[in-house]
């Protein structure tokens, strides 16, 4: 059903030095929202676009969707430069906190968006029914959207973004404001799209979801791209793994030596919990405990999470 097809070898989304400066207020104050963003989203990948509030994620998505114009720089969608309205035949978009025509019923709503793509009546009917089923709203087809809950609105919003069976799906904060069940449903929809070979580009600040479903991520802070790559690549650069060791029945002398090796020590009754930020030190401590009378209760490796990386990148700017 998508009329515009991906050109072999082209990125689904590519931006080159994209900048946006907003001019606000009576004094025409210039507020940079995006500075020199260059990145690409490849075909078939789920790409997470991360950043704190106000980082410029929504601005980027709006530029890509033709809602605002970049101040400078270029961008291409499926190999076509911005401004080519035709390319949107192959794109689906869900805005942040979507508001919809609440006087329409779910069926009318999807039918309307189907018409914007020039779909025939039969196509619109079958597609609407299929999507309502997919997002779990098959019983609400004749209900006006004003009676929908927040979660239902998010789901009908996703259905709207998929009405044209797009090659590229762009979602702005699709999980925000949803309960854990709703988030899982959205995650499942994204994974389902990937399985069908679609490309999904979404912005979020809900990090655990990203680690599970994203092939690649980019981190945007204050309008600047700070990092991009697979989750494993980005975390690989985070340095050594940390280890948490819990021991029992330590002598006083041993406790003293171990405390010297550990980055942090916590005593919980008979147990001592030691944190090591270095694998070598953890190894030394393990041998020491084994030689003495103490006993290791548990040994837990801690790999750095995306959250650690995210916080590190966000704080980098604050320290400067």
């Amino acid at each position: 059903m998508a009329y515009i097809h991906w050109v072999h070898g082209e990125d689904m989304i590519r931006t080159e030095n994209l900048c946006k400066v907003f001019v606000s207020g009576f004094l025409m104050r210039k507020v940079p929202a995006l500075t020199g963003l260059s990145m690409e989203v490849r075909k078939g990948e789920v790409f997470g676009f991360l950043g704190p509030n106000g980082a410029g994620k929504t601005t980027t998505l709006k530029i890509l969707m033709g809602l605002i114009y970049p101040s400078s720089g270029k961008a291409w969608i499926m190999g076509r430069e911005l401004g080519d309205v035709d390319v949107k035949r192959g794109v689906g978009f869900l805005p942040e906190h979507p508001y919809f025509y609440d006087y329409l019923t779910a069926n009318e709503f999807l039918d309307f968006y189907g018409r914007l793509f020039g779909l025939g009546r039969a196509d619109r009917r079958s597609r609407s029914a299929e999507l309502l089923r997919q997002v779990g709203l098959e019983r609400s087809g004749d209900v006006q959207l004003r009676k929908f809950s927040k979660g239902m609105l998010q789901r009908i919003g996703i259905a709207q973004a998929l009405i044209n069976d797009p090659e590229l799906v762009v979602l702005d904060e699709p999980m925000s404001g949803l309960d854990p069940i709703g988030r899982k449903e959205v995650r499942d929809i994204i994974i389902g799209l990937k399985d069908k070979g679609k490309t999904v580009f979404f912005s979020t600040h809900i990090l655990p979801d990203v680690e599970v479903i994203c092939d690649r991520v980019a981190i945007l802070v204050k309008g600047e791209l700070r990092a991009t790559g697979t989750v494993a690549e980005l975390l690989g650069g985070m340095g050594a793994k940390a280890v948490e060791m819990t021991v029992e029945g330590l002598g006083e002398a041993e406790t003293g030596v171990l405390s010297g090796l550990a980055a942090n020590v916590m005593v919980r009754g008979r147990q001592t919990v030691l944190f090591f930020d270095d694998l070598d030190k953890a190894g030394q401590a393990k041998r020491l405990v084994c030689r003495g009378e103490g006993e290791i209760v548990s040994l837990i490796p801690h790999s750095p999470s995306l959250e650690d990386l995210f916080l590190k990148e966000v704080r980098k700017g604050e320290g400067a």
Binding site: M65, L67, K88, R89, P95, P98, Y99, Y101, L116
Partner: peptide, 11 residues
């Protein structure tokens, strides 16, 4: 903000 979903369509 309903316009977001319209302008992002091929129109």
């Amino acid at each position: 903000k309903t316009i977001y979903t319209i302008i992002s369509k091929p129109i």
